[in-house]
């Protein structure tokens, strides 16, 4: 951090000013002039929170994608299919048992299992052939998409939010002050906050697992230099299978999350694949902190964009990607 400030004082200053402005926008009561110019503070805060929580969801999807890519150089373009598969499984379980938590567990296990099967049966046979693996994942994504369309039809599904999470919660953030002088606080859906908290927990857990455990060290070493893995005598295939299972399982969990606060339908697989692609391109391939930063940026850009410049929201996301590629092609937090 201090090294960053030393090396890029101008950038550091810009970042600090941006953070200060953002904090002011969040905590201060907006003056009338500002509300006239850009709209109500409640709208802004809602978009902001939606962006952050959407970022949490994107992180869940993209972290698995980036982990698999980082270790195995496998661009898994069937990752979106795993997301959708997890969502459908979660829906089925939650509809059958009524248990939201159980749907997460089963979705994680089943998608992880699919991941294991893919790694063992398919990708192990074509190790080192990046392009062929990618082609296979494209073929798989088409097959999966059609199988799921066959099984689930083209309908929209939404996973039932459990009772204890339904309804908004009042946050200690003032959106406006009534004429009586009484402050109005922001009310925000509890489920989204809980899910965001959960994705932060998962992210921190992953970071700790990667930085503090033996297998995490091995995986990180493998991301940096795959030849090291072979040299350490680790059972490399086992590591690959574990990582693939984890990455796929996270996509499945994300599917349940997405199915809860958005909806599931054919085409969502592509949408979340695209989101993962952009997130890891922006954040840096193979980097978990990069995926977190990228997910936050893209989630915010999408939500704020859709509120303030509705017809060009997708362009904002895209421009961010272009900008990153132009300035730092390896991604914001990638090492190389």
């Amino acid at each position: 951090m201090t090294r960053f400030v030393e090396r890029h004082p101008a950038w550091a200053l810009i970042v600090i000013i941006a953070i200060a402005v953002a904090l002011w926008l969040i905590f201060a009561v907006w003056p009338q002039g500002l509300e006239d110019a850009v709209g109500r503070k409640r709208v802004f805060l809602n978009a902001l929170f939606n962006g952050i929580t959407l970022g949490g969801l994107y992180f869940l999807v993209a972290s698995g994608f980036t982990l698999i890519f980082g270790l195995m150089r496998n661009v898994n373009l069937a990752h979106g299919s795993l997301y959708l598969f997890g969502g459908y499984v979660g829906y089925a379980i939650s509809a059958a048992t009524g248990s939201w938590v159980l749907s997460f567990i089963v979705a994680f296990i089943l998608t992880a299992l699919v991941g294991v099967l893919l790694q063992v049966l398919v990708f192990r046979r074509m190790e080192g052939q990046d392009l062929r693996q990618t082609m296979v994942t494209i073929g798989l994504s088409i097959v999966f998409a059609d199988l799921m369309l066959w099984a689930c039809g083209g309908d929209f599904y939404q996973i039932q939010t459990p009772n204890w999470l339904i309804g908004p919660v009042e946050l200690p953030l003032v959106t406006a002050v009534k004429s009586s002088g009484e402050p109005v606080y922001l009310r925000y859906p509890l489920v989204r906050l809980v899910i965001f908290a959960a994705s932060v927990v998962i992210g921190v857990a992953m970071w700790l697992a990667l930085n503090r455990t033996r297998i995490g060290m091995i995986i990180r070493a493998g991301v940096d230099d795959r030849d090291i893995l072979a040299a350490t005598g680790v059972r490399i295939q086992l590591v690959f299978v574990v990582v693939f299972a984890l990455g796929a399982g996270l996509a499945g969990v994300a599917g349940v999350v997405g199915g809860t606060f958005q909806s599931l339908s054919p085409g969502e697989d592509i949408r979340f694949l695209l989101a993962s692609l952009v997130v890891v391109i922006v954040g840096g391939m193979g980097s978990i902190p990069g995926a977190a930063l990228g997910a936050l940026i893209i989630g915010l850009a999408e939500q704020l964009g859709s509120v303030y410049i509705p017809t060009y929201a997708i362009v904002v996301t895209f421009l961010i990607m272009v900008l990153v590629l132009a300035i730092r092609p390896q991604g914001l937090l990638a090492r190389r």
Binding site: V75, L77, D130, T134, L277, I281, M285, F318
Partner: peptide, 13 residues
């Protein structure tokens, strides 16, 4: 391999 990802992102955008 990044080419695939970037061009796919352009197409989707």
């Amino acid at each position: 391999i990044y080419t695939i990802m970037i061009t796919l992102a352009i197409g989707a955008a």
